[in-house]
């Protein structure tokens, strides 16, 4: 039976590196995924955010109160690091198109072994998603990733980012509209 998270946290606080290593293993994929999405197109930044998140957590574990869950706390540290690293993009204005286009032209890749053409298509789609994310302010990227990739609820996302649920809903809605517009336009442009 795996050791409970609270036991691992206690042992980590007492300076047991093996216990903290177990916590890292539990959360590192999630933290890396968040960093990779938010630091869209900047893999070195994503690696740094991933590493700094756990180093910060290790140093500040004594201040962790346990009220919001370790995952929420780690997401919060990672989000703050993303903000700090990417803050020059924070105030970049953007306008999500709110009209009603046809919605045609966006196709998802098939889940089979890809041909070279399909592999290239998948790579192009990945690049298109990264390019679209990069145009969004960091707070929108964080909300979109926490909600639509990590699967957090509006309430959990609000806790991580220390904003209201209404702010999460608003950023999520506008961010999704922006992504839809960018991805549909790119797909139509390539056709």
């Amino acid at each position: 039976m795996p050791e409970s998270e609270s036991a691992l946290i206690s042992r980590s606080r007492e300076g047991d590196p093996a216990a903290f290593e177990s916590l890292v293993r539990r959360y590192e994929d999630r933290i890396y995924r968040l960093a990779k999405n938010v630091c869209a197109g900047a893999p070195a930044e994503a690696d740094d955010v991933y590493q700094e998140t756990f180093l910060t957590a290790f140093k500040k574990l004594r201040t962790f109160r346990g009220g919001s869950g370790l995952g929420t706390w780690l997401y919060r540290i990672a989000s703050n690091l993303c903000f700090m690293r990417l803050r020059s993009n924070k105030r970049r204005p953007f306008v999500a198109a709110l009209d009603l286009p046809s919605g045609e032209g966006l196709r998802l890749p098939a889940d089979s072994i890809p041909t070279p053409e399909q592999a290239a298509g998948k790579r192009e789609l990945a690049e298109a998603v990264a390019r679209a994310l990069k145009l969004l302010p960091v707070d929108y990227r964080l909300v979109l990733t926490l909600r639509d990739v990590e699967g957090l609820s509006n309430e959990e996302t609000a806790k991580v980012l220390k904003v209201s649920v209404a702010a999460v809903k608003s950023r999520l809605h506008r961010g999704r509209l922006f992504m839809r517009e960018r991805l549909a336009a790119l797909s139509e442009g390539a056709a």
């Binding site: 590192e28 590493q51 046809s102 998603v129 990739v149 839809r180």
Partner: peptide, 28 residues
């Protein structure tokens, strides 16, 4: 429908692999 497709595309592309071995080793 197009909004759902864009969300699915973001979700699918957002599933990054595990951290690179070098980044993991540096963290340890």
């Amino acid at each position: 429908a197009s909004l759902r497709r864009a969300m699915a595309l973001h979700r699918a592309q957002g599933r990054a692999p595990s951290p690179p071995p070098l980044a993991k080793a540096e963290l340890r």
